[in-house]
Design a protein around this nucleic acid. Structure first.
Length: 480
RNA sequence: UCCCCUGUAGCUCAAUUGGUAGAGCGAGCGGCUGUUAACCGCUAGGUUGCUGGUUCGAGUCCAGCCGGGGGAGCCA
């Protein structure tokens, strides 16, 4: 990185992280750092302390500004929370408590002022997450949101690294999709038609043939169907990208725009799928614990004191496997034994959140993979089991969150798939290319979906997925 | 979409049966201090979400609308 022309500083540029770690710097080094001021504390006896952060690590660096600095009275004492600065000096052992080293500055150059500190939206005080969502462009300057950004990055890198090291290819499935192949969930229309003057057919309906793609198009609700095509040539693949649902869901676990991870493996059955899910989740959480102890320590201290213990237990545990039949039997026994649920339990119903939590938290005490669900409550593409009433679907349930992964072995037999499409009232012609995959060299294959924001929320203890994505999109909210 | 809660200073919240709108934090200024959730003093800061209604009088009661939160459903 080139030194900024205006600074005229010549000392080696370091990140705050490098300055604070022995791998990066040693005491006595002449260095230069750049960043934003979190707080300034003055000693009128003749020096000031600036806490400067640059995003490279959780801790800020303390910059000691002596009154001897030529711009001390004119500029340094006017620097406050939010100002950007470039500082040059010597790395020294700290005389105070709270940090081992600090930067004894010989030059401090203000780069960007906060013109009116009274209006700065994120002064150094406590804020509610609800308020900070209204200033999402500045909330990343807080401890919580800068830590969140690093955790998010770390987990994203861990996802890619896990798959890459295990022979998976990252497949960029389309964001814009034809409407009729995806089925699940309300979708966002993609169109360049003039809303003020919509073209209509002779029958009076909107003429989508005149739209940009010559047909109705939407934003994707899942890359699964597309990634299956690549799976049946590359063997091990995954998607990791934005996903869109136009559902009017107003909860702490839903976003209109979120990121989803969907691996797909060929020559694999449901048991292979469950094994992959277990290995994958443990791997990315292990990486997070290893690589970001400071940020995770913050989440433990200020957000959720159990988050690290929970992840440690998660990565050390072995997942229980259990058939849906068995899960229902256990739940019915629990009810007979006096356990109270809001929703009744019987074979054929989908498990409610309270049922999932009981299984994984109370009964097993570890993550649980529930497998082979009734066919009537699952999607058309899931593989029919020989019993004629279940499909090879699975959910991974984890203590503290419930369902974290949903997956299935896919129906690879064309005749069975066609029968299912017909049974569910879907138009078989919409699935022509998906059916081709079964006509030409079909193989058993399986995959699962993982919501990235829910994963981050689980890892950090953050209660709302709106606070683990930089600029959340929810019903009636698309600011920034 | 349904149920519940909620909207007062930049932020977090008070304000008795309807009777002159307050505090803490933050900000500015001053004091003090190798400080670090600093501390002490002073100052500024309000059409109580919007519209209408009841009343001598509404932050308070009523209706509608808008925004926020929690839960449910849907799901990831």
């Amino acid at each position: 990185m080139e030194p900024m022309e205006r600074s005229g500083m010549s000392a080696t540029l370091r990140t705050v992280k490098e300055a604070l770690t022995t791998e990066g710097c040693r005491e006595g080094d002449a260095i230069r750092i750049r960043g934003w001021i979190r707080t300034r504390r003055d000693s009128k006896a003749g020096l000031s302390f600036l806490q400067v952060h640059d995003g490279s690590c959780f801790d800020p660096i303390q910059v000691v500004a002596s009154g001897d600095l030529e711009n001390y009275e004119s500029e340094v004492v006017r620097l406050g929370t939010g100002c950007s600065v470039e500082c040059e000096g010597t790395l020294v052992a700290s005389q105070g408590k709270g940090q081992s080293v600090e930067l004894q500055a010989v030059r401090i150059i203000p780069v960007g002022w906060v013109e009116d500190p009274d209006t700065y939206p994120v002064p150094a005080k406590r804020h509610t997450f609800e308020y900070l969502r209204e200033v999402a462009h500045l909330r990343v300057r807080t401890n919580t949101f800068s830590a969140m950004a690093r955790v998010r990055h770390c987990l994203a890198q861990a996802v890619h690294r896990y798959f890459h090291e295990n022979g998976f290819y990252w497949v960029h499935t389309p964001i814009i999709t034809g409407s009729d192949c995806e089925g699940a969930g309300e979708m966002f229309r993609v169109s360049t038609l003039d809303f003020e003057n919509l073209p209509r057919t002779e029958e009076g309906i909107i003429d989508t043939a005149q739209d940009f793609f010559g047909r109705e198009t939407n934003l994707t609700v899942s890359g699964q169907l597309n990634v299956e095509a690549y799976c049946l040539a590359l063997s091990k693949v995954y998607t990791f990208g934005p996903t869109f649902r136009a559902e009017n869901s107003n909860t702490s676990r839903h976003l209109a725009e979120f990121w989803m991870i969907e691996p797909e493996i060929a020559f694999a059955d449901l048991a292979d799928d469950a094994d992959l899910a277990e290995d994958f989740l443990k791997s990315i959480f292990r990486t997070l614990l290893d690589e970001l102890p400071d940020d995770m320590g913050f989440f433990r201290d200020r957000i959720d004191k159990t988050c690290i213990d929970r992840l440690e237990a998660f990565v050390e545990s072995s997942f229980e496997r259990m058939d849906y039949n068995e899960a229902i039997r256990l739940l019915e026994e629990a009810v007979a034994g006096g356990e109270k649920f809001d929703y009744p339990v019987s074979w054929g119903v989908d498990l409610q959140s309270e049922h999932e939590r009981w299984l994984t938290e109370t009964h097993v005490g570890r993550p649980v993979v529930v497998m082979n669900y009734p066919r009537d409550i699952k999607a058309f593409y899931m593989r029919q089991n020989d019993d004629g009433r279940t499909v090879a679907a699975m959910d991974v349930l984890a203590p503290g969150i419930g369902e974290i992964i949903g997956g299935a072995q896919r129906e690879e037999r064309l005749d069975v798939l066609d029968a299912r499409i017909a049974e569910m009232g879907l138009d078989v012609s919409d699935y022509w290319w998906y059916r081709d995959l079964r006509k030409y060299g079909t193989v058993p294959h399986a995959g699962f979906g993982l919501g990235f924001e829910r994963t981050i929320a689980y890892a950090t203890g953050m209660a709302n997925v709106r606070d683990v994505i930089p600029f959340p999109r929810t019903p009636r909210t698309a600011d920034f």
